[in-house]
Amino acid sequence: MMTDAATLAPVQPRRRALALSGWDTGVGHALMILVSLVCVFPIYWMIVTSLRPENAIFSTRLWPDAASLDNYAYALRAVPMQRMLVNTFIVSAAVTAVQLLSGILAGYAFARWRFRGSAILFGAVALTWLVPLQVVMIPNYLLVARLGMIDTLGALILPHIASAFAIMLLAQSMRSFPTEVVEAARMDGGNHWQILWQVIVPNLRGTLASLAILIFITTWNEYFWPLLLTRSPENSVVQIGLQMFISSEGTQWGPLMAASTMASLPILLIYLVLQRQVISSFMKSGLR
């Protein structure tokens, strides 16, 4: 026993086994550097191009010699970029808030009670991911039209009031919440509503934060639903704004890259600050 523990305890033996394959490590580094370049260079090139003055836009130098913000100024003038960025922020923040709220409520119901139809309802929630938006787009469009909400920000939020992933993740983390704590709070006379908001939710801050990041980024990046609904630039989101630079014949690369940079800047900033949390929340989510 003692010898086993002694060989297992330090990191040394493993290290040695790994060090055996120095060649492999070299190959690993080379592979990762190559893949990293493929993944990051396009984004780098976007930013570099956006900073080039107009007469140097086709330059292939890897570094901008004279940085200029002309492309940004042009992009902001050509389409109501600021307004679109604000719109996108409003929609993303609102969707994040309501999806967390509906997820907390539904997750609590599934985690706390066994009620008639609970299994069926849970299945119905889980199966929503099997229905692509393209399949229900026409009825959804008609509904928005009936509500008179075409070309409004509200219509961009409404279908996203609930998400299967938020509900399932929260139900799961609430199920693993220690029952003794909940029972103790009940003994203190707390009702379900109070227990949910005063005991459970504060303890799930981490889960809720990573869920919020995920929902915000996903909503910020959404393209299909706004494409269906927006008519005027003032009421649309930044992803639609980008498209305006492309569809006009003869793409203006400088302004397009400036607009693209602006459209991804909030996301990239979140990523820069909360990189670990972003990665882990995306991994938890599967791909949606």
């Binding site: 990051v40 984004i43 498209q243 397009l256 693209s260």
Partner: peptide, 30 residues
């Protein structure tokens, strides 16, 4: 490496499309 290779995942799809259009442009794409 993890941090770097994850970047494409969070970039908006329309931005990805625009950037690749630029990189692959027949006359001026790098």
């Amino acid at each position: 490496y993890r941090a770097l290779i994850f970047v494409p995942m969070i970039v908006p799809p329309v931005v990805a499309a625009a950037v690749w259009r630029w990189l692959l442009d027949p006359s001026h794409g790098i």
